[in-house]
């Protein structure tokens, strides 16, 4: 036997769920045959697993899938609008959000045609270059937030809120699928100071990355 009794005890759940390799399984089964206490624990764990496996869980099912498809469609449509807006903005023309606004815009152009044409066809001035119309996000524009932060699994919202207030930070995006948040300093606050505070907050912050550096 190469492992201690304690190590074998820690592996019992994986003997019960059948995920140990053959060698480990044989070693633990041999130990169970000699140790009634371990055997009783194994039996109890097996009973717990059986009870859990027997539970009937009612899931959202097809309703959940329909909801998912609906929201995916909405998001896809929004993304398409966004791309159209950004494309329009890059070309220096007004973005169209729907047929209604399209026709309103056409009507407006009919009235203001010559004025509009002369405006859009003239060369851009230095001041106009790189300036997007208010309310539109250009494709490829920089993501908000100076810091990419992962919070510790056990950190409470109250603890996180207190830390962010101390460090004069706000959450501007997240959590991402990886559980990371984008944070930015409030006006007038120093990002280096804030980063230092986050890094010293053990138990609340798991990782900090300054994505602007």
């Amino acid at each position: 036997m190469t492992r201690s009794r304690d190590e074998i005890e820690l592996d019992l759940p994986f003997l019960v769920n059948g995920t140990l390799d053959a060698e480990a399984r044989a070693e633990i089964e041999a130990a169970l045959a000699e140790d009634p206490h371990l055997a009783a624990e194994h039996e109890a764990l097996a009973a717990i697993r059986s009870g859990m496996q027997a539970e009937d869980t009612k899931t959202p099912g097809e309703f959940g899938l329909a909801r998912l498809m609906r929201d995916v469609d909405r998001q896809t449509a929004r993304a398409a609008d966004h791309r159209a807006d950004a494309g329009g903005a890059r070309r220096g023309v007004a973005p169209f959000r729907s047929r209604t606004t399209l026709w309103q815009a056409v009507a407006a152009v009919a009235v203001l045609g010559i004025v509009a044409q002369s405006y859009f066809l003239r060369p851009a001035t230095n001041l106009e270059v790189n300036v997007a119309p208010a309310g539109y996000v250009l494709a490829g524009s920089e993501e908000r937030g100076a810091l990419l932060v992962g919070f510790a699994a056990g950190a409470t919202e109250a603890a996180i809120r207190g830390l962010l207030l101390d460090a004069e930070l706000e959450i501007v995006a997240g959590p991402s699928a990886l559980g990371l948040y984008r944070l930015d300093v409030l006006d007038g606050a120093d990002v280096e100071t804030a980063t230092g505070l986050l890094r010293s907050a053990e138990g609340i912050v798991e990782s900090v990355e300054n994505v602007r550096n």
């Binding site: 009634p36 206490h37 009783a40 039996e43 109890a44 009973a47 717990i48 009870g51 027997a54 539970e55």
Partner: peptide, 20 residues
């Protein structure tokens, strides 16, 4: 006692409510 609890755990196989 673990052995006693183990017996109880075995009985709990039928006791989904307790387990939950």
């Amino acid at each position: 006692d673990v052995a006693e609890a183990a017996d109880a755990g075995f009985a709990a196989k039928q006791e989904a409510e307790h387990l939950r």
